[in-house]
Write a protein that binds this DNA or RNA. Structure first.
Lengths: 249, 249
DNA sequence: TAAAACTGCGTATGGTTTACGCAAAAGCGT
DNA sequence: ACGCTTTTGCGTAAACCATACGCAGTTTTA
């Protein structure tokens, strides 16, 4: 029989790619995946990711919680589909220099995450598989086209930059949340003071060298752009060095 | 009145640093933070992080769920304390070369995460504040001591490497989970096939260049060490370039 | 000896995801 | 035109979850 056992994509993912015909039978659907994902994103934008429950999304749609499960197989799947919506289309590149292209890609990616901070709180359950996520992946690889990097290395480089973007935005979001909440996130606002109380220059000399320069006492939040820049520059400089090592311009 | 309003650390954190005297009054405690955290880690090791509920941890201790709240103010706090336990002490450095030191630090850090995969699933709620986490932070800064980097840049560099370690381990854990589960994580095992089905060389030229070289068809899991190496080398090469730019050896 | 303080924990509340099955609606084959 | 089949919406309910509140009992201290 040779059962091929070809693995199938979740049907909602296939639907996101536009490869599912509505079979027509049965009552006219009043709901569809797009409306559900739209509503979920609306809730996340207004009230944060924690507010996104099947119940809350159903209320937003004026429908019943269980009705959603006809179109989405689980909440995780809904979350995955949500991350595809705000991405829209990646930017077109104008520069001939791969550094400029990768830099533009990173900043644009960060901008999207900053506009929709809940996106970085959605756990990554695997490689990009929805249309816009794949489009951004493609754009990242395109930025590195024509360089001396092997294909696998390009993928690694894009992943590295992507990870940097995510973690930077997440850190920023934590800081901003610290200003309001009295939770453990509050620790962040007084991090320098806490470290000074818990450690000494003998226990933690390197840490106290940083403390002495006031690294953790930043009141101005403008430093975050610089922090992002530092990581981005480091990665790009590293890629540059790797390329130069095997192929001089 | 000048109410100082000095923010206080969570009492369990102060306890982790050994700065809380048991006040003595009241019945002899049968539970303490250490036993609770131990039990929680035991559950996470055996059954994964999702199995760690107050109920499950209490069962492990032969106690009642609400008894835990006398020693731990919330589940989030318990999770934070959990991440401190497996770290133990960071490695001592032997090399004079900061590259070697940073590399050793990164590999050792990754080893811990790989031995306790649930650790990377605990969301980072802020900068390191528990003893062992701070000790690792200190060690990372120590690796960069004596270099031309500013103190703030050292912190950024350690954060960059730390993020790379975390994301690498998380990706590996996802892959390993894909072999068993039939969830959406299954996508990972057939990622190349799915991309070939959903995209064309016209839509996604850069992606198909990678596909043609079989980048996503890796059956051997040994490639993961190489992927980690690539990112680590890139970061280190980047830091090297930044140092060289302002201070030649 | 009495008061104070502290532990363990029972009860209960309000949330979560989602399995299961049923009634109604709509198109298809005859 | 009529029944069959498919599909939708959704009601019910089960099995979880974190944790607020308050009470009973135990131990130290005054």
């Amino acid at each position: 029989m040779a059962d091929e056992q070809r693995p199938e994509l979740p049907s909602s993912v296939e639907l996101a790619w536009g490869r599912r015909a509505s079979s027509g039978r049965g009552p006219r659907p009043t709901l569809n995946v797009e409306r559900i994902v739209d509503a979920a994103v609306r809730v996340a934008n207004k009230e944060g990711l924690d507010a996104v429950s099947m119940n809350r999304v159903a209320t937003e749609l004026g429908s019943s919680p269980m009705a959603l499960y006809r179109h989405v197989s689980s909440k995780d799947e809904l979350l995955m589909l949500m991350t595809d919506l705000p991405l829209e289309s990646p930017p077109r590149f104008t520069s001939d220099d791969w550094r400029e292209r990768l830099r533009a890609w990173a900043w644009a990616h960060r901008e999207v995450f900053q506009r929709y901070p809940w996106m970085v709180r959605v756990p990554i359950g695997g490689p990009p598989i929805t249309p816009n996520n794949v489009a951004w992946f493609e754009a990242g690889l395109e930025a590195l086209a024509g360089t001396a990097l092997a294909e696998g290395e390009k993928v690694g480089a894009v992943l590295l930059v992507s990870t940097h973007v995510r973690s930077d935005v997440q850190l920023n979001a934590d800081i901003r949340a610290a200003e309001a909440n009295t939770d453990r996130a509050m620790v962040l606002a007084n991090y320098g003071a806490f470290l000074r109380e818990l450690t000494t220059a003998d226990d933690h000399p390197a840490l106290h060298r940083a403390l002495q320069e006031g690294v953790f006492d930043d009141e101005d939040t403008d430093s975050t752009d610089e922090d992002f820049e530092f990581g981005l520059q480091t990665i790009i400089a590293g890629l540059e060095a790797l390329m130069r090592g095997r192929d001089d311009d």
